[in-house]
Amino acid sequence: MNSVALFLEYSAVGIASGGIYALIALGIVVIFKSSRTFNFAMGEMMMLSAYFFYTAAVTFSMGIFFGVVAALIGSVAVSLLIERFALRPMMGRPFIAIVMVTFGIGSIIRGVVGMIWGPNDLQIPAILSRSPVLLGSIFIPGKTARAFAIAVVIVISLIAFLRYSRAGIALRAAAADQITAYSMGIDVRRVIAFSWVIAAVTGCISGILMANVNTLTPHLGLVALNVLSVVILGGMNSIGGVLVAGFIIGWLESVTGWILGTEFREITPYILALLVLLVRPTGLFGTKEIERI
């Protein structure tokens, strides 16, 4: 195989894994928009959802479909509890204090999951077919390709929903100016709770997909740290930016891993994030306020 073909293949695989990054990043960005809260527990929410799916589908033999439904319900419930009892009382407190709360919640979830389900890898029922997808002569592993398709469909639907629905407009209004949003009858606390529901859904789907592509362990959530660079690249407050940034980070990881070796794969996203912060702190698509001159 010549190097051009290899490059294309690594690129395709990388972009494909970027789909899940975009899905996770969307959950982070939506919460950040509604309440200026950076949710470091996103990865653990994702991992917990995958355990919910495992328990429903395997332990209680509910099958894949009802397993996903049960996992979604469980994730939304946990997410709303976190918002109501850990984050809402922190409203108006310094950013760093709120971030530490989410960090703490992430650690608690990781610990509790380890106590309940144990530290070992679990096999969840295969949702995604293994049969590889061929794009011309480019070969993409079946699970990665299908996880990509599901993630991208969900990301695009959510972006469209947030762009055009009344609920999406309420979210953007609360994001722009809380007091003015209140003055227009928008219950900002409900908007924030709603953003946690969206994050629960994206976290749950990405968790189940991720556990399918890899395996299920209490450390599944660590992937969300890579997503940090996606969010920084796309722009903290840009819903649309997550998709492009997810693809770029996924591609970069894959290609640098191929060219420079896997050890570089781990650090490239962070180097890029650092560069973005230095050169363009708002990210590629983060909005600066429109000011009329």
Binding site: R172, M184, G185
Partner: peptide, 20 residues
């Protein structure tokens, strides 16, 4: 004034339908 500058004029009005 506190208009939502990133939104269109019409989206600003849609946001206000929550006050009806």
């Amino acid at each position: 004034r506190h208009i939502f500058s990133e939104m269109t004029v019409e989206e600003n009005l849609i946001a206000s339908t929550f006050a009806q």
